[in-house]
Every structure is written in C-alpha cells, then in structure tokens.
C-alpha cells in the first residue's frame, strides 16, 4: 500500500539535496527531479515542461494526467523522429513507472505539453504542475521557467 502524506520533510530533504524542485505533496514513493520549462512568447503558443519522475517505491505507479493553473490543456506528449528525420508529436497516454525506475521528460522525447496557456510563461517565474496517478495519488512540483533558449535544467 502506498501512503499519501503531506511531506514537508521530503520537500525539505529534496531542497537540501540540491535538487531544483521540491515536491510539495504526494505519494512519498514518487520523486520529481530537475523540472524546468522554457519561457513563452505570449499566450498563443503551447509551452513544454521537462523533468525526471522517479518511482522509489516497491509498487508500479502509472501517470495518467496533469493539471496546472497555467494551462487549460496540459498533456504528456511524445516527440518521435522517424527514419526520414521527420519529427512529430503525439499524446503519450498513460505512463507506467516500475518500482525503482524513472521516466525522463526531456527535449525530443516525452514532454509535458502545456496547451492553452492562461498567462505567458515568464523567465524567472515558476508554476505548479500536478502529476495525477491512476490510484488517485498526486504530486505537485513547482516548475522553474527558464529562458526561451534554455537547453536544460541548469541553464
């Protein structure tokens, strides 16, 4: 059984560990690291956010969706590049993470696609992004917004 506890201790530990994103609350088995996103130009373009989601527990977890006040339609997408070098994006559906495994949302692979922004994404700000799991668990992370030309969480 997984326990859902408000884990301010965990958040503190994560912060102390030098990780950029403290998890605010959620299944204690899920750790989100290195979350980041790029600033947007206005509100008409979709944004994208990246992070690593680690299942530190003994049971599989399945990510089924996202919510955020920043965007009306946040969704996990996958970018694929075919043999002809043509890239395309499709909804990734549910993502199962086995115990001890992690899933990377990174440029050119999976990303949190932020469609219908409610406000522009401004460099230096952060926004809360909540990951929804199939057993009703939630994890909220505070995602830093980096520059438009950022290449990774450390930029």
């Amino acid at each position: 059984m997984k326990k859902y506890i408000l884990t301010s201790t965990l958040a503190a530990l994560l912060t102390l560990g030098g990780l950029s994103v403290p998890a605010l609350a959620g299944p204690e088995d899920v750790v989100v690291e290195n979350a980041w996103s790029r600033a947007s130009i206005g509100m008409n373009r979709p944004g994208a956010a990246y992070m690593t989601i680690r299942n530190t527990g003994d049971e599989p977890v399945t990510l089924i969706g996202l919510t955020t006040p920043l965007a009306m339609m946040p969704e996990i997408h996958e970018t694929k590049t075919n043999a002809e070098g043509v890239s395309s994006m499709t909804p990734a559906g549910e993502i199962a993470i086995a115990p001890g495994e992690s899933v990377a949302l990174e440029s050119g692979g999976l990303h949190a696609m932020l469609m219908r922004l409610q406000e522009p994404m401004t460099e230096g700000d952060t926004f809360p992004l909540t990951l929804l799991f199939d057993d009703g668990g939630e994890v909220t992370v505070e995602v830093p917004i980096l520059g438009i030309a950022a290449r990774g969480p450390d930029d």
Partner: peptide
C-alpha cells in the same frame, strides 16, 4: 516553426551552442 514547443527551440538552442 515558432509555435513548436519542443523540437524547434531545442534545435535552435543546440545550434546556438
């Protein structure tokens, strides 16, 4: 295209690098 959230900013950043 400039409405591209993932591949294009990544490529432009790579090229800048």
């Amino acid at each position: 295209f400039t409405y591209c959230p993932d591949v294009c900013p990544t490529t432009l950043s790579d090229i800048s690098g």
